[in-house]
Design a protein around this nucleic acid. Structure first.
Lengths: 226, 226
DNA sequence: CGGTGTGAAAGTTTTCACAGCG
DNA sequence: CGCTGTGAAAACTTTCACACCG
């Protein structure tokens, strides 16, 4: 410990970190931000774990992938740990994002305030429908998707969101990749084919409900079996 | 194999099934529905795996948790497997759903067509804001959240969605639980405290972007290290 | 004390590899 | 022959338990 505390930018992620650990880091960060806002200075691994439903050991192991952030007998200093986790996740700097597809859901996402909280901002939105191009929604003028490459280049944008219908999603992905985008959040209910150097994350709203349906159904099956 | 094929409703889920397996079942189902729509009759585990980026063995093991669905030398019959997976997930019957919170995102979800595809339909939407109550959005009249228990009871609804701001989410959850809801999809960026008999699934849009930020950043770190 | 960081043990999930079937 | 279903092995993740620190 002592004077060997990771400096900003210096993330000792030598060993490959499991995805599930990274997703918990996001949860820790979210909780810490709430705690800090409520005035809490420090927190122990067991307190943090309890708030999220994890064990204390898991919290410590997860953080251990990235460095040593705690103080024995004290716990973690919220402010410091928040900064460290934002370094890990890469959100200490702003991320401009482009959106492709401005239907129902796209419009709602344009108005969603939660992105800003973690340093993301939707800088441009595109659609292929001429009726939509030129409209201003949530203060953003919708552009034709042909303008995507120029905007991505000029603004140095690296992340994109796909919010088009399923049948248009692969085409949208291809356009984003061609424009040089490095990471895609896909809201369309299809599996995208992407080159290995492009990262992606998918959100399928119907699948979330399906998972819940299974959980509720199998819980009932269990209760019935007792 | 032969004549010991699971019947509708008879899901031999004796052993406890890992969550990650259930989430892949949803992906298999989504892909199979696409294949069936395009006219494909049968599919092998390796074809299905390739489409989704999994190994053939993983597909077979996952399905093996629930029964025997394949034909050696042939593969799986799409139509049959779709039906079996919907039985597993519990989506061969319709699921009415209530929504609490009709802001930006809630309104977009009310208009989202993708839910119907998997047999979910939003049957009622609630808000605490008197200015919203009584409005009709996407053909649904917004009701005051005080009416939630009566609607849940009269329509026999078991699933709910929370689409309120973070600070209101726990209160919304408490109301849903009190009304007798058994499963909750939570779109608010907070961890809910729920009784053990209530299931939940969370979607935090900022966290999805954060995961992408990490993936893109660490990929770059790796590329730089080469 | 109260708490971290971390090897070693336990538990879980994935991959392998092959018998068996139509 | 092509493909499933499945034990056994390998890989991975979580939990345990304890040395060490302030």
């Amino acid at each position: 410990m002592t004077d060997f505390r990771p400096q900003p930018g210096e993330i000792p992620s030598d060993a490959t970190v499991p995805k599930v650990v990274v997703s918990r880091i996001s949860l820790y960060l979210r909780e810490l931000q709430r705690l800090e806002a409520s005035g809490q200075q420090t927190i122990s691994s067991s307190q943090l774990g309890t708030l999220l439903g994890f064990s204390d050991a898991q919290v410590r192991k997860d953080l251990g992938f990235f460095g040593q952030f705690g103080y024995p007998g004290v716990g973690y200093r919220c402010e410091e740990l928040i900064h460290a986790m934002r370094d890990i996740l890469g959100t200490n700097h702003a991320w401009p994002v482009v959106m492709v597809g401005v239907g129902n859901l796209g419009q709602a996402l344009l108005g969603y305030r939660g992105f800003g909280r973690q340093n993301f901002s939707i800088e441009a939105a595109f659609d292929a429908d001429p009726a939509k191009v030129g409209q201003t929604i949530q203060g953003l003028r919708i552009q034709h998707v042909d303008e995507l490459p120029a905007v991505v280049k000029s603004k140095g944008i690296r992340l994109g969101m796909i919010v088009v219908p399923a049948v248009r999603a692969q085409e949208a992905a291809d356009r984003l990749v061609a424009a040089g985008i490095e990471g895609i959040v896909n809201f369309a209910p299809v599996t995208l084919t992407l080159p290995a150097h492009v990262q992606s994350v998918s959100v399928d709203l119907a699948i979330e409900l399906e998972q819940l349906s299974f959980a509720v159904t199998s819980k009932l099956a269990k209760a019935g079996a007792l």
